[in-house]
Amino acid sequence: MGKVVDFAEKKSGDFGEKTIATTEKAGGFLTDVADFFIFLTNIANDTFSRGFEFKEFFRQCFQIGNKSLPLVTITGTIMGLVLTIQSRPVLVQFGAVTMLPGMVAISLIREMGPVITALICAGKIGSGMGAELGSMKVTEQIESMEVSATSPMKFLVVTRVWAATLMIPILIIYADAVGIMGSWAGANIKGDVSFVLYFSQAFSHVDFMDFLPAVIKSFFFGAVIGIVGCYKGYNAGRGTESVGKAANSAVVLASLLVIIVDMIAVQITDMLT
Protein backbone atom coordinates (compact mmCIF):
# COMPACT_ATOMS: atom_id res chain seq x y z
CA MET A 1 0.00 0.00 0.00
CA GLY A 2 2.81 2.30 1.05
CA LYS A 3 4.52 1.70 -2.30
CA VAL A 4 1.34 2.62 -4.15
CA VAL A 5 1.05 5.86 -2.16
CA ASP A 6 4.74 6.68 -2.81
CA PHE A 7 4.26 6.02 -6.52
CA ALA A 8 1.12 8.20 -6.60
CA GLU A 9 2.91 11.01 -4.72
CA LYS A 10 5.88 10.78 -7.03
CA LYS A 11 3.65 10.85 -10.09
CA SER A 12 1.65 13.81 -8.80
CA GLY A 13 4.94 15.57 -7.98
CA ASP A 14 6.22 14.94 -11.54
CA PHE A 15 2.93 16.15 -12.93
CA GLY A 16 3.15 19.35 -10.86
CA GLU A 17 6.70 20.06 -12.02
CA LYS A 18 5.78 19.35 -15.63
CA THR A 19 2.76 21.63 -15.37
CA ILE A 20 4.90 24.46 -13.96
CA ALA A 21 7.56 23.90 -16.65
CA THR A 22 4.93 23.87 -19.41
CA THR A 23 3.25 26.99 -18.01
CA GLU A 24 6.63 28.75 -17.86
CA LYS A 25 7.38 27.75 -21.46
CA ALA A 26 3.97 28.97 -22.61
CA GLY A 27 4.50 32.22 -20.69
CA GLY A 28 7.94 32.61 -22.31
CA PHE A 29 6.45 32.04 -25.76
CA LEU A 30 3.70 34.61 -25.16
CA THR A 31 6.29 37.11 -23.89
CA ASP A 32 8.31 36.55 -27.10
CA VAL A 33 5.20 37.11 -29.22
CA ALA A 34 4.39 40.30 -27.28
CA ASP A 35 8.00 41.50 -27.67
CA PHE A 36 7.80 40.87 -31.40
CA PHE A 37 4.61 42.92 -31.74
CA ILE A 38 6.11 45.75 -29.69
CA PHE A 39 9.11 45.62 -32.03
CA LEU A 40 6.80 45.90 -35.06
CA THR A 41 4.96 48.83 -33.48
CA ASN A 42 8.28 50.59 -32.82
CA ILE A 43 9.32 50.08 -36.46
CA ALA A 44 6.02 51.60 -37.63
CA ASN A 45 6.31 54.55 -35.21
CA ASP A 46 9.94 55.26 -36.05
CA THR A 47 9.29 55.00 -39.79
CA PHE A 48 6.81 57.83 -39.72
CA SER A 49 8.42 60.01 -37.04
CA ARG A 50 10.68 62.89 -38.08
CA GLY A 51 14.27 62.42 -39.24
CA PHE A 52 14.34 59.36 -41.48
CA GLU A 53 17.95 58.19 -41.91
CA PHE A 54 18.13 58.39 -45.71
CA LYS A 55 21.91 58.05 -45.97
CA GLU A 56 21.92 54.81 -43.97
CA PHE A 57 18.85 53.59 -45.88
CA PHE A 58 20.65 53.98 -49.24
CA ARG A 59 23.77 52.34 -47.81
CA GLN A 60 21.65 49.37 -46.75
CA CYS A 61 19.97 49.24 -50.18
CA PHE A 62 23.44 49.00 -51.69
CA GLN A 63 24.51 46.31 -49.20
CA ILE A 64 21.39 44.24 -49.76
CA GLY A 65 20.91 44.82 -53.47
CA ASN A 66 24.29 45.18 -55.09
CA LYS A 67 26.17 42.79 -52.85
CA SER A 68 23.59 40.02 -53.35
CA LEU A 69 23.74 40.23 -57.16
CA PRO A 70 26.41 37.55 -57.78
CA LEU A 71 24.60 35.03 -55.57
CA VAL A 72 21.20 35.78 -57.11
CA THR A 73 22.67 35.66 -60.65
CA ILE A 74 24.16 32.20 -60.10
CA THR A 75 21.05 30.86 -58.33
CA GLY A 76 18.64 32.29 -60.90
CA THR A 77 20.62 30.99 -63.89
CA ILE A 78 20.93 27.50 -62.44
CA MET A 79 17.24 27.52 -61.48
CA GLY A 80 16.16 28.20 -65.10
CA LEU A 81 18.74 25.84 -66.56
CA VAL A 82 17.84 22.89 -64.30
CA LEU A 83 14.10 23.43 -64.69
CA THR A 84 14.48 23.34 -68.49
CA ILE A 85 16.74 20.28 -68.55
CA GLN A 86 14.40 18.37 -66.18
CA SER A 87 11.15 19.34 -67.94
CA ARG A 88 12.26 18.90 -71.55
CA PRO A 89 12.14 15.05 -71.77
CA VAL A 90 8.59 14.93 -70.36
CA LEU A 91 7.37 17.63 -72.75
CA VAL A 92 9.07 15.85 -75.67
CA GLN A 93 7.17 12.65 -74.72
CA PHE A 94 3.86 14.52 -74.96
CA GLY A 95 4.91 16.37 -78.09
CA ALA A 96 4.62 19.67 -76.26
CA VAL A 97 8.21 20.87 -76.40
CA THR A 98 7.05 24.20 -77.81
CA MET A 99 5.38 24.83 -74.44
CA LEU A 100 8.76 24.64 -72.69
CA PRO A 101 9.60 28.39 -72.65
CA GLY A 102 6.15 29.34 -71.38
CA MET A 103 6.07 26.65 -68.74
CA VAL A 104 9.50 27.61 -67.41
CA ALA A 105 8.66 31.32 -67.46
CA ILE A 106 5.41 30.83 -65.54
CA SER A 107 7.06 28.51 -62.99
CA LEU A 108 9.87 30.98 -62.45
CA ILE A 109 7.78 34.14 -62.29
CA ARG A 110 4.93 32.75 -60.20
CA GLU A 111 6.71 30.55 -57.73
CA MET A 112 10.27 29.39 -58.07
CA GLY A 113 11.91 32.75 -58.66
CA PRO A 114 10.30 34.52 -55.69
CA VAL A 115 10.53 31.63 -53.20
CA ILE A 116 14.03 30.39 -53.99
CA THR A 117 15.47 33.91 -54.22
CA ALA A 118 13.74 34.84 -50.95
CA LEU A 119 15.17 31.74 -49.25
CA ILE A 120 18.65 32.54 -50.56
CA CYS A 121 18.22 36.13 -49.30
CA ALA A 122 16.96 34.87 -45.93
CA GLY A 123 20.24 32.99 -45.66
CA LYS A 124 22.48 35.82 -46.80
CA ILE A 125 20.70 38.99 -45.69
CA GLY A 126 18.75 37.68 -42.68
CA SER A 127 21.80 36.04 -41.13
CA GLY A 128 23.92 39.10 -41.94
CA MET A 129 21.50 41.41 -40.15
CA GLY A 130 21.17 39.02 -37.20
CA ALA A 131 24.93 38.70 -36.82
CA GLU A 132 25.70 42.40 -37.36
CA LEU A 133 23.11 43.74 -34.94
CA GLY A 134 23.85 40.91 -32.50
CA SER A 135 27.54 41.78 -32.40
CA MET A 136 26.67 45.48 -32.09
CA LYS A 137 24.56 44.57 -29.05
CA VAL A 138 27.33 42.47 -27.50
CA THR A 139 29.95 45.19 -28.00
CA GLU A 140 27.66 47.90 -26.54
CA GLN A 141 27.43 49.78 -29.87
CA ILE A 142 23.63 49.88 -29.70
CA GLU A 143 23.73 51.28 -26.15
CA SER A 144 26.35 53.77 -27.28
CA MET A 145 23.98 55.00 -29.99
CA GLU A 146 21.20 55.31 -27.44
CA VAL A 147 23.25 57.49 -25.10
CA SER A 148 24.28 59.64 -28.08
CA ALA A 149 20.60 60.60 -28.17
CA THR A 150 20.15 58.67 -31.44
CA SER A 151 17.41 56.09 -31.81
CA PRO A 152 19.13 52.80 -32.73
CA MET A 153 15.72 51.55 -33.80
CA LYS A 154 15.48 54.31 -36.37
CA PHE A 155 19.08 54.18 -37.53
CA LEU A 156 19.68 50.43 -37.55
CA VAL A 157 16.32 48.68 -37.77
CA VAL A 158 13.98 50.92 -39.78
CA THR A 159 16.58 51.49 -42.51
CA ARG A 160 17.38 47.78 -42.84
CA VAL A 161 13.75 46.66 -42.85
CA TRP A 162 12.76 49.14 -45.57
CA ALA A 163 15.88 48.44 -47.62
CA ALA A 164 15.10 44.70 -47.52
CA THR A 165 11.42 45.35 -48.34
CA LEU A 166 12.35 47.36 -51.43
CA MET A 167 15.44 45.53 -52.66
CA ILE A 168 14.31 41.92 -52.41
CA PRO A 169 11.49 42.35 -54.99
CA ILE A 170 14.05 43.89 -57.35
CA LEU A 171 16.38 40.95 -56.77
CA ILE A 172 13.50 38.56 -57.41
CA ILE A 173 12.59 40.22 -60.73
CA TYR A 174 16.26 40.11 -61.68
CA ALA A 175 16.44 36.41 -60.69
CA ASP A 176 13.39 35.71 -62.90
CA ALA A 177 15.11 37.42 -65.85
CA VAL A 178 18.40 35.56 -65.47
CA GLY A 179 16.41 32.37 -64.83
CA ILE A 180 14.76 32.68 -68.25
CA MET A 181 18.19 33.30 -69.77
CA GLY A 182 19.42 30.14 -68.01
CA SER A 183 16.41 28.35 -69.40
CA TRP A 184 17.30 29.50 -72.93
CA ALA A 185 20.84 28.17 -72.39
CA GLY A 186 19.34 24.86 -71.17
CA ALA A 187 17.07 24.64 -74.21
CA ASN A 188 20.06 25.12 -76.49
CA ILE A 189 21.94 22.17 -75.06
CA LYS A 190 19.75 19.78 -77.08
CA GLY A 191 18.14 22.15 -79.52
CA ASP A 192 18.73 25.30 -81.45
CA VAL A 193 16.50 28.24 -80.68
CA SER A 194 17.27 31.93 -80.96
CA PHE A 195 17.24 34.12 -77.87
CA VAL A 196 14.56 36.45 -79.27
CA LEU A 197 12.27 33.58 -80.28
CA TYR A 198 12.69 31.86 -76.91
CA PHE A 199 11.87 35.05 -75.01
CA SER A 200 8.85 35.90 -77.16
CA GLN A 201 7.55 32.32 -76.75
CA ALA A 202 8.12 32.49 -73.00
CA PHE A 203 6.28 35.77 -72.55
CA SER A 204 3.42 34.87 -74.89
CA HIS A 205 2.19 32.57 -72.09
CA VAL A 206 2.70 35.05 -69.27
CA ASP A 207 0.06 37.64 -68.47
CA PHE A 208 -0.13 40.46 -65.97
CA MET A 209 -1.88 38.33 -63.35
CA ASP A 210 1.05 35.90 -63.30
CA PHE A 211 3.36 38.77 -62.58
CA LEU A 212 1.43 40.98 -60.13
CA PRO A 213 0.76 38.57 -57.22
CA ALA A 214 4.39 37.39 -57.38
CA VAL A 215 5.67 40.95 -57.12
CA ILE A 216 3.29 41.77 -54.27
CA LYS A 217 4.32 38.75 -52.25
CA SER A 218 7.99 39.61 -52.90
CA PHE A 219 7.54 42.81 -50.86
CA PHE A 220 6.21 40.71 -47.97
CA PHE A 221 9.16 38.31 -48.31
CA GLY A 222 11.52 41.29 -48.09
CA ALA A 223 9.74 42.72 -45.07
CA VAL A 224 9.75 39.33 -43.30
CA ILE A 225 13.48 38.83 -43.92
CA GLY A 226 14.32 42.36 -42.74
CA ILE A 227 12.11 42.29 -39.66
CA VAL A 228 13.19 38.83 -38.50
CA GLY A 229 16.90 39.49 -39.12
CA CYS A 230 16.75 42.77 -37.19
CA TYR A 231 14.55 41.38 -34.40
CA LYS A 232 16.86 38.46 -33.73
CA GLY A 233 20.00 40.62 -33.82
CA TYR A 234 18.54 43.50 -31.81
CA ASN A 235 17.35 41.14 -29.08
CA ALA A 236 20.48 39.00 -28.96
CA GLY A 237 21.81 38.05 -25.53
CA ARG A 238 25.02 39.29 -23.98
CA GLY A 239 27.72 36.75 -24.85
CA THR A 240 29.45 36.15 -28.17
CA GLU A 241 27.58 32.83 -28.39
CA SER A 242 24.34 34.76 -28.75
CA VAL A 243 25.61 36.37 -31.99
CA GLY A 244 25.77 32.94 -33.64
CA LYS A 245 22.39 32.03 -32.19
CA ALA A 246 20.85 35.28 -33.46
CA ALA A 247 22.20 34.70 -36.98
CA ASN A 248 21.10 31.09 -37.00
CA SER A 249 17.60 31.66 -35.68
CA ALA A 250 17.15 34.63 -38.06
CA VAL A 251 17.77 32.33 -41.04
CA VAL A 252 15.55 29.54 -39.73
CA LEU A 253 12.63 31.76 -38.76
CA ALA A 254 12.84 33.98 -41.86
CA SER A 255 12.93 30.92 -44.15
CA LEU A 256 9.95 29.39 -42.36
CA LEU A 257 7.99 32.63 -42.55
CA VAL A 258 8.79 33.02 -46.27
CA ILE A 259 7.22 29.60 -46.89
CA ILE A 260 4.18 30.48 -44.74
CA VAL A 261 3.73 33.87 -46.43
CA ASP A 262 3.99 32.12 -49.80
CA MET A 263 1.28 29.64 -48.81
CA ILE A 264 -1.04 32.47 -47.70
CA ALA A 265 -0.27 34.48 -50.87
CA VAL A 266 -1.04 31.49 -53.09
CA GLN A 267 -4.37 30.92 -51.30
CA ILE A 268 -5.35 34.59 -51.62
CA THR A 269 -4.35 34.68 -55.32
CA ASP A 270 -6.32 31.49 -55.94
CA MET A 271 -9.42 32.97 -54.29
CA LEU A 272 -9.18 36.21 -56.26
CA THR A 273 -8.58 34.74 -59.72
Binding site: M136, E140, Q141, E143, S144, M145
Partner: peptide, 8 residues
Protein backbone atom coordinates in the same frame (compact mmCIF):
# COMPACT_ATOMS: atom_id res chain seq x y z
CA UNK B 1 31.95 52.28 -22.62
CA UNK B 2 34.18 49.55 -21.29
CA UNK B 3 34.61 48.07 -24.78
CA UNK B 4 34.96 51.48 -26.46
CA UNK B 5 31.82 50.69 -28.50
CA UNK B 6 33.16 52.23 -31.71
CA UNK B 7 30.90 51.58 -34.69
CA UNK B 8 32.70 48.85 -36.61
Amino acid sequence: FQSGALYD
